[in-house]
């Protein structure tokens, strides 16, 4: 079920990523102020935007989980946060590289996006330890959802606060005084956002398909070989029972 459309999505992602790469390297004009370095922007900012959207979406999924009590939503929320954390790390690393290239330091405190990203990362990095410390899967799902909702609301608020506290001295490519992005840059930027979004969605789908398959095989083993032949599940941060086994409310 969950594997449906995976091939089409994989192809689309591949095309979009190649297109982004080609456009960035061969077509997008060099920035007047920053030159070639500015091209990291096409990678860093879309990854950042997708990460943020993903965190908020995970919060919405978590809300659905609490409303419906369905473990299916817990799985989605978990996987989205899991992958968003990885994107978050990519965003932090590319941001650090950009900072080093533009301003000579690996870390700059007056770049609000980067700083917010670190704070958001620190918060979401506690999601897995929190899940891991709760044994009962039902409670784990509920508590994780509460966390995801609170954290989802935290993301925009945190951005506001960090933005307010930062003096904007560095050149910002997006929406600065020198009048936004030129058309060509904007086009490449949008293509890149689409590509990163597709990549994110693809990985989420892979992950969900893999987890569901694992559960189904586990259930099959239990049915075929008996409950004793299957090692009991240890503590796990990931959701551990198949959604179809989940209680109906």
């Amino acid at each position: 079920m969950h594997g449906k459309g995976l091939r089409a999505l994989t192809l689309a992602t591949l095309v979009a990523l190649s297109a982004t790469f080609a456009l960035v390297v061969f077509w997008a004009p060099n920035d007047a102020d920053q030159g070639f370095i500015q091209k990291i922007f096409y990678l860093h900012v879309p990854v950042a935007i997708i990460t943020l959207i993903a965190y908020v979406v995970a919060g919405i999924f978590a809300w659905r989980q609490l409303k419906t009590g369905s473990r299916e939503w817990d799985l989605r929320s978990y996987v989205v946060i899991h992958i968003a954390l990885i994107f978050n790390i990519v965003g932090l690393l590319t941001g650090a590289i950009w900072a080093k290239a533009s301003w000579g330091h690996w870390w700059v405190w007056d770049e609000p996006t980067l700083v917010s990203f670190l704070i958001v990362f620190l918060l979401y990095a506690t999601y897995q330890p929190l899940r891991f410390s709760i044994e009962d899967p039902e409670r784990q799902a509920r508590y994780a959802s509460v966390f995801a909702i609170i954290a989802g609301a935290f993301v925009p608020l945190n951005f506001m606060a960090v933005r307010m506290a930062t003096s904007l001295v560095h050149p910002r490519t997006f929406g600065t005084a020198n009048g936004g992005l030129p058309g060509e840059m904007m086009f490449v930027f949008l293509v890149s956002i689409v590509a990163m979004g597709l990549l994110f969605w693809l990985i989420v789908k892979y992950e969900i398909a893999q987890k569901t398959l694992t559960w189904q095989i586990r259930a099959l083993r239990r049915r075929l070989l008996g409950d004793d032949a299957v090692a009991p599940l240890g503590r796990s941060a990931a959701p551990t029972i198949a959604p179809q086994e989940a209680p109906a409310r």
Partner: peptide, 20 residues
Amino acid sequence: IRTRSRDLIVPIVTLPLLVP
């Protein structure tokens, strides 16, 4: 309170939440 390691969970969750 109903997790296994509450004295670890409280600071690591609360502190980043309070940054803003």
